[in-house]
């Protein structure tokens, strides 16, 4: 046997060892399917922190596994056309309605609210108090793109009626695909101010939120949809129950600064 043939054989032995390590290794990885029931949740990236707490509790209580995929609401919506999942949690009702129009959902349950604010660095070093300040010279503004991010669409709709949007949009130096990108810009000092959710600003210790009356009027509803492809009616219902439970899900979301939607206000579709 030539020396390089021995190397080739050795590489196969190593490969077999690695496959074994993967198969019996830690985590939920490997080649096995999950033992218990699995819920697949497509979840807006901005809601990651509170939903992780809900999932942890749910898994402990039910023994089921929740496989959460995090990305922007819009990105997830297009993924839903290619992949099957049980639940879709979007940061804005608009996306849930789009999913409904495409015939992907069986039920939509809104459960929390958020509204846009102007995010500045802690202490508001540039003294930004109003929308007019966003068009000031030397103030670098970062905005969520209305085409791609829920918050962009809502902010645009709110400001367009008073023709405030156009000048701010033209003045902005950055247009971002997700709300976290906007917040990161302000945090990293690439920009002085940006439009984000009040809940986003609350999650960043480095940011302060400037409330704008125009923004407060409109609320974006965060909701969860049960998908047509789901075959686990009981488990999805149990997850939603947990999310809506005032002692569990609602309490967790309130802690992260979300405004809750009470049982009476909740408009479940259909």
């Amino acid at each position: 046997m030539f020396r390089y043939q021995k190397y080739a054989v050795a590489s196969l032995v190593i490969l077999a060892g690695l496959i074994t390590a993967l198969a019996f290794g830690p985590g939920r990885g490997g080649f096995r399917r999950e033992r218990g029931p699995v819920l697949t949740l497509f979840c807006a990236a901005g809601v990651r922190e509170p939903i992780r707490e809900v999932i942890e509790r749910f898994e402990r209580e039910t023994g089921a596994t929740v496989e959460a995929r995090f990305a922007g609401s819009g990105v997830l919506l297009s993924s839903l056309r290619l992949e099957e999942a049980d639940l879709y949690l979007a940061a804005d009702r608009g996306y849930l309605e789009q999913a409904q129009e495409r015939g992907l959902t069986t039920r939509i349950v809104p459960f929390a609210r958020q509204h846009p604010v102007i995010a500045v660095r802690t202490g508001n070093p540039h003294q930004i108090q109003s929308l007019a300040d966003l068009t000031r010279e030397k103030i670098r503004v970062t905005l969520p793109d209305p085409e791609r991010a829920a918050i962009g669409r809502i902010a645009k709709a709110l400001l367009e009626s008073q023709s405030h949007w156009e000048p701010i949009w033209r003045h902005a130096i950055l247009q971002r695909a997700t709300v976290n990108d906007v917040a990161n810009d302000v945090k990293l000092e690439s920009a002085d101010a940006g439009v984000v959710w009040n809940t986003t600003a609350a999650q960043y210790p480095e940011l302060d939120a400037v409330e704008i009356p125009d923004f407060k009027s409109a609320d974006s509803e965060i909701g969860i949809a049960v998908l047509k492809t789901s075959q686990q009616a009981e488990l999805t219902q149990r997850f939603i129950d947990e999310l809506l439970d005032p002692e569990i899900g609602q309490q967790i979301f309130a802690r992260y600064g979300y405004d809750l939607i009470s049982h009476e206000q909740r408009k479940v579709t259909p």
Partner: peptide, 22 residues
């Protein structure tokens, strides 16, 4: 990007960035 399942390091970085934990 499934945590503790298909999460490799570049994916971890992306997940942290997307929740603002730079």
């Amino acid at each position: 990007a499934i945590e503790r399942k298909t999460e490799v390091m570049p994916v971890s970085i992306y997940l942290q960035l997307s929740s603002g934990d730079i």
